[in-house]
Structures are given as structure tokens and as C-alpha cells.
Nucleic acid binder design. Structure first.
Lengths: 93, 93
DNA sequence: ACAACATATACCGATATCGGAATGTGTCAA
DNA sequence: TTGACACATTCCGATATCGGTATATGTTGT
């Protein structure tokens, strides 16, 4: 849902069709997303357009980023081992 | 829990005390985290040491990162407006 | 083999979540 | 104002999750 609403804002009906859920179900999901701030809504005529609030995802991004050092750490370990033992590159430990 | 296990590996008992939950509860949480791959376990004597599997968080990080362009976009919009209308910097729209 | 320790599993009640049918609310068009 | 449209809310049953107690499993030291 967040991905769908990230591209551009959409009315509820679009999501109903895209997700294959009932309209009430979609509305309820949107309500909690709105309450948590992950989604913003604005009325346009009869419709209500939703879009994902990218800013609300930033904290999650930053939290996940605190683990980044482990990835690069692992990469550098592998690289380091490969460079220090070039003759064993094709063999098993 | 993931944060606690990110610093270094810990036995279940540590988490029980750190989280104030019962031992079975902690064990069950660890089980689902293990099943989903967010956590790895290894036995050391009587204890079982858990650590968060940082690699499993990378996809989440990358997904959240797809929204990054919206943040910078907003930043550049603000900056752009501020630079094009320097006289209105202290006023309201 | 046995007792003590560390953890896992089974089981249970309370609560939360999910999804749908029925119904309420607001908006446009005539 | 009325009917139709788009969506929200209420109500309900089914299922999932949570946290605990009791118990089983595996490990170490004797």
C-alpha cells in the first residue's frame, strides 16, 4: 500500500481494485496508517486522495542504517582475506 | 531486542532481565525472529547465544531508501524557495 | 546416573488484528 | 431536494498474537 501511494496520490477505489480487498478493509487500513502518520489524505470532490508521507519513513531508514556498518564490515573482511591470500582464491578454507 | 542483540551476542537470560519479560516469552520471540532470519543462534555450553543478523535488515533499509528522494526533494524545494524569495524569509506565505 | 542450570515447548486465557456485510456520512449533479 | 457516488464507520466471526504457568529438552559438573 505504501508503495502504491508513494508513486502518486490515489483514491480509495484505486487501492480496492489494486489490492483485491473490500472497500471497508482498505479504508480501515488507511485509517491506521493515517493515525500513525505514514499516510496523508486530502479531499478532492467526492474522492479522498491518499499519499504516503515519506518523512515518516525516515526514522525507520535511519534505524536500519545503524546496522550498515555490519554489512560494510563483512565486505571489508572478505575483501581483506581475498587480498592477503590471493593464492587460495579458488580453493576452500 | 534487535538493538540489544546488535551490540553483541547475548544469552536468553540477559534478554529476560533487560526486557522484564518472562523467559518463555523471550524464547518465543527469539524463535520467530530466528524463523524470519532476523536473528542467529549458536550454542555455547548450557547457553544459547543470539545475535541479530544485520544482513536481514538490509532489504528493509533499501526499501526505506527508495523514499529518500522525497526527503531531498522537499529540502531542495525549501532551499529553492528561500533563495528565490530572500525578502520573505522571515514572513509567512 | 543425577542434580542443577539454561533454554525450548505445550497449553491457556486475554486481547488484537483481519476481512466482510450492513449502514452512516459527505459531496456532486440535476 | 433527491439520487448516486465515494468513502467512513459499526458490528461481527475467525484467526493471530501476547504473556504467563507448567513442563520437557539438552548441557555441565559430580
Amino acid at each position: 500500500m505504501l508503495d502504491l501511494l508513494a508513486v502518486d496520490e490515489r483514491p480509495v477505489g484505486d487501492l480496492v481494485q489494486a489490492l483485491g480487498l473490500s472497500q471497508p478493509s482498505v479504508s480501515k487500513h488507511l485509517r491506521v496508517l493515517r493515525q500513525v502518520g505514514l499516510v496523508r489524505a486530502r479531499r478532492q470532490g467526492r474522492r479522498i486522495l491518499y499519499r504516503t508521507n515519506a518523512g515518516a519513513i525516515k526514522p525507520l531508514y535511519e534505524w536500519a542504517g545503524t546496522f550498515e556498518r555490519f554489512w560494510s564490515q563483512q565486505l571489508s573482511r572478505i575483501k581483506q582475506r581475498a587480498e592477503s591470500n590471493p593464492r587460495e582464491s579458488r580453493g576452500n578454507p
